[in-house]
Nucleic acid binder design. Structure first.
Lengths: 98, 98
DNA sequence: AGTATTGTTCGTAAATTTACGAACTGAAAT
DNA sequence: ATTTCAGTTCGTAAATTTACGAACAATACT
């Protein structure tokens, strides 16, 4: 039996997107990706003052939230905004703020 | 000596706002407040499936992030959106998503 | 003065987040 | 074949988040 939450699916998704945005490292990455089309995580390693394993965690967080996607260009990985979900998130935040 | 972060003040503030939005309880509260002008926390206690101490923590989180403000109407407290910061947050999110 | 109402604070517990370095994996280059 | 490069996974530690109930504080009501 499924216990239904008082929170709508939409509210839960919005909170999930917000969580992905709740860290300056991830804001930095997303702003970079939304300004230029894509980047390699090596670019990020060079500029961000965190260990590569930590960066990997942050990228995974953004990927799991659906905001970015990675494409293998061996031996590197090219990261881009996931446009569909990015647009969806944009609308969710827009509606929250009216 | 102040160690300067590679993250801008704006990026840190945006992450801070996102953190405040990163929980379904707080999304619920903010949507309620942005739809109707204000509410009493008793209204929230009635509808939210959490302990009053937990609700108090969430309201404090929203207050500390600057998104809401409380006004004493003894013995209750009337909560409203903090319009100035709400507008500021709106702009920050809007700019993030272009 | 005493009681009820409203909300905060305290102490605590479990889960999650953020961070690191070391070890590992897979593909490319030598 | 082995070395190099790019990135992930693992183990771990510290801090933060979320949650609860009990106790407390402040005000209103009787």
């Amino acid at each position: 039996m499924e216990k239904k939450s008082i929170y709508s699916d939409r509210q839960i998704k919005l909170a999930r997107f917000a969580k992905a945005l709740s860290n300056p490292v991830r804001i930095y990455i997303l702003e970079l990706l939304s300004k230029q089309s894509c980047c390699y995580s090596g670019d990020l390693t060079d500029v961000l003052p965190i260990a590569k394993s930590t960066l990997s965690q942050h990228l995974k967080e953004l990927k799991d939230a659906g905001l970015i996607q990675g494409e293998i260009e061996a031996p590197k990985i090219k990261y881009c905004i996931n446009k569909e979900n990015w647009e969806f998130a944009r609308i969710q935040f827009k509606e929250l703020f009216n």
